[in-house]
Simulated scan of single mutants.
Amino acid sequence: MTILNAVANTLSRHTRYLDNELHTIGGLVRPGDVCLDVGSAAGLYSRTLSDLVGPAGLVHSVEPLSFGHPFWSRVLGARRRGNVRHHAVALGAQPGRAAMRVPYTASGPATSRSFLGRESRGLGSTAEFVRHEDVVVEVSTVDALVAEAGLERLDFVKIDVEGGELHVLHGAARTVERFRPAMFIEIEERHTARYDHSPGDVVAWLTARGYTMYTWQRGWVPAERVCPHTNNYLFRSS
Rank of each mutant, 00 (worst) to 15 (best):
V7L: 14
L206N: 11
R74Q: 11
G68M: 07
V29W: 05
E189V: 05
L169E: 11
T15D: 06
G57Y: 06
V89R: 12
A127T: 12
R218T: 03
N232C: 10
L44C: 11
S198Y: 04
V139E: 00
A147H: 15
Q94C: 10
H87E: 14
R153D: 06
R153Y: 03
H69P: 04
S66M: 10
A88Y: 05
G32E: 10
R16Y: 13
Q217P: 00
R47E: 02
G163F: 02
R121K: 05
T105E: 14
E138S: 11
A56G: 10
L22K: 00
Y211S: 07
E138H: 08
R101D: 02
M100K: 00
G43K: 09
P228Y: 02
E128P: 06
F156R: 01
R121M: 07
E162L: 04
F235R: 11
E152N: 14
A106E: 08
P181M: 09
S140Y: 07
R225Y: 12
F156N: 02
F179H: 06
T126W: 00
A106Y: 06
S237F: 12
T215G: 15
L52C: 03
D201V: 08
M1K: 11
R16L: 13
T126C: 01
T141W: 03
R81H: 04
G163H: 07
G26R: 12
S114A: 15
R80Q: 13
G210F: 13
E152D: 13
T2Y: 02
L28E: 03
D33W: 03
V157R: 01
G108L: 05
L169R: 11
F115P: 04
P181G: 04
V202N: 07
L234F: 02
H197T: 06
L91I: 08
V226F: 08
D33R: 04
P55E: 14
L58I: 03
N5R: 12
G150D: 08
L28H: 01
D19I: 06
L169D: 14
V221F: 02
R97W: 08
T48R: 14
E177T: 14
R153K: 12
S40M: 03
G96K: 07
S198R: 15
T192Y: 01
S125T: 05
N231Y: 07
A98Y: 02
I159Q: 01
H197C: 09
H14C: 13
T192E: 01
